[in-house]
Structures are given as C-alpha cells and as structure tokens.
Simulated assay, not measured.
Amino acid sequence: MADETIARKRLRGFGNWQATATRHTPLEDAQGLFTGTVLTALGIAILAHLGFLTGGTAGLAFILHYATGVNFGLLFFVVNLPFYFLAIRRMGLAFTVKTFIAVALLSLLTAVQPALFAFGTVDRTTGAVLGGLLMGFGLLALFRHRTSLGGVGILALYLQDRFRWRAGITQLAIDLSVLALSFTVADPTSIAFSILGVVVLNLFLAINHRADRYIAM
C-alpha cells in the first residue's frame, strides 16, 4: 500500500514543473512548439512535392516561391515580419517570442528538408488530404501552446480571443482569398487540390480548436 502511494505521487509529479490546470510549463511549451512545427513542415513538404499551395502567409510564400524561385523558407520568414507588430500589441510578448521561434524553425526545416528526405510517387488527392491534416495537427499543437506560425494565425487567434470567432473558420476565409491569387502561378487542377488541402486543414481546426474546450495557456 505504501509503495502504491509513493508510485502515485511520483506519477503526479512527473514533468510537473509548477504546472497548473490552466498553464503549461516551459518544457511543455518547448515540446509543443517543436512538434507542431515539425508536423507543419512535413505537411508543407508534401504540398510542395506535388506543386500545391496553401493559404495564409505560407500560401503567399508559396506564390512568391513559384514565381521567383527564391527559397520558400526565406520568403516565409520575411512575409511574416509585419505581423509581429500586431502580435506584440494584441497577444503579448510571450506569444510573440514563441511565434517568432516557430516561424524561424519552420523556415529552417523547410530549407533543409530536401537534403534530409525526398518523396516518391504520391497520389494527388491523398497528398492534399494528408498535407492538410498534418498542417492542421501542427497548428493545433501550436495554438494550444499560445503560439502560431505568424500572419493569418496571429490574426485568427486574436479574433477568436477578442470576438470568439472560430480560428479555423476565419483562417479558411482568408486562405481561400489567398488561393485566388495562386491562379497567377499554378494550373487550375493544382489549385483545386490545394483548395482541398486548405478545407481539410481548416475544418480540422474549426472542429478541434475551441477556446471553451481547452483553456491552458
């Protein structure tokens, strides 16, 4: 009985570095940020392999990448710079710093990904759905640790905090607007598959990311 009590205490204390029901520890934030960014980078790699796009600042970076040939990671980092002003004014310093780290890490991962692994044949429908789901999982992990991948993510989280608008629905509307610009660099078939990926991503977020169900900071 004594051994069981000790075991329970150890289990409760494992990883509990001043954590509470509503606040993550620095270690929890670090693993959430890293995992979310890696999953998102993998989803982006699948989309890029198929010549697809996505929405938000990543979509803008894709458009510029296809139009100019400049590295996607560098463009993604630069496109996000103007949004940090809104982040630090509306979301706080901690959110802004974590977001900057996540954006920088994603930029690095997408830049080195071709040297780390490559894809073979990927069915286009499967790639669009899988890419959208991976990015959705990644963004969900980041959102739940009070960070984002900049740009539209910052705006969507701000609007959810301010007006209780679902982050996924807000992001879907903006993403579809960004995809409308992609007709300048991609063919209609690729854009159609890109829209499929965006819808999968944002419906996943709309269903799973709700402030009234997850309150940890």
Rank of each mutant, 00 (worst) to 15 (best):
19 A>C: 08
135 M>W: 03
61 A>F: 01
38 V>H: 06
108 L>H: 05
180 A>S: 13
36 G>D: 02
40 T>P: 00
150 G>S: 07
115 A>T: 11
32 G>C: 03
88 I>Q: 09
20 T>P: 11
213 R>E: 13
106 L>P: 01
124 R>E: 10
13 G>E: 15
206 A>S: 15
37 T>D: 06
70 V>T: 10
8 R>D: 08
46 I>D: 00
123 D>W: 08
108 L>Y: 13
30 A>M: 12
88 I>E: 10
198 V>L: 07
135 M>G: 07
66 Y>I: 02
133 L>Q: 03
217 M>N: 14
145 H>E: 09
169 I>K: 06
196 L>Y: 06
191 I>W: 05
106 L>R: 02
104 A>F: 10
104 A>R: 03
188 P>Q: 09
202 N>H: 11
129 V>R: 04
15 G>H: 08
36 G>T: 05
95 F>T: 07
210 R>G: 05
91 M>K: 12
21 A>Y: 11
216 A>Y: 13
85 F>C: 11
71 N>T: 09
76 F>W: 01
25 T>R: 06
22 T>Y: 11
18 Q>A: 14
98 K>I: 03
11 L>D: 13
72 F>S: 06
119 F>P: 08
93 L>D: 09
146 R>S: 15
56 G>A: 00
95 F>V: 09
202 N>V: 02
193 F>I: 06
68 T>Y: 04
202 N>L: 04
69 G>Y: 05
193 F>V: 05
25 T>I: 07
205 L>R: 09
142 L>G: 12
185 V>T: 13
209 H>L: 04
2 A>T: 11
168 G>I: 03
163 F>Y: 14
69 G>F: 05
190 S>E: 06
164 R>F: 11
181 L>D: 00
98 K>Q: 07
93 L>V: 14
55 G>C: 04
39 L>K: 06
82 P>Q: 12
116 L>E: 08
58 A>H: 05
59 G>R: 04
45 A>V: 02
196 L>E: 06
129 V>C: 05
212 D>Y: 11
116 L>I: 14
44 I>N: 05
41 A>T: 14
78 V>R: 00
207 I>S: 07
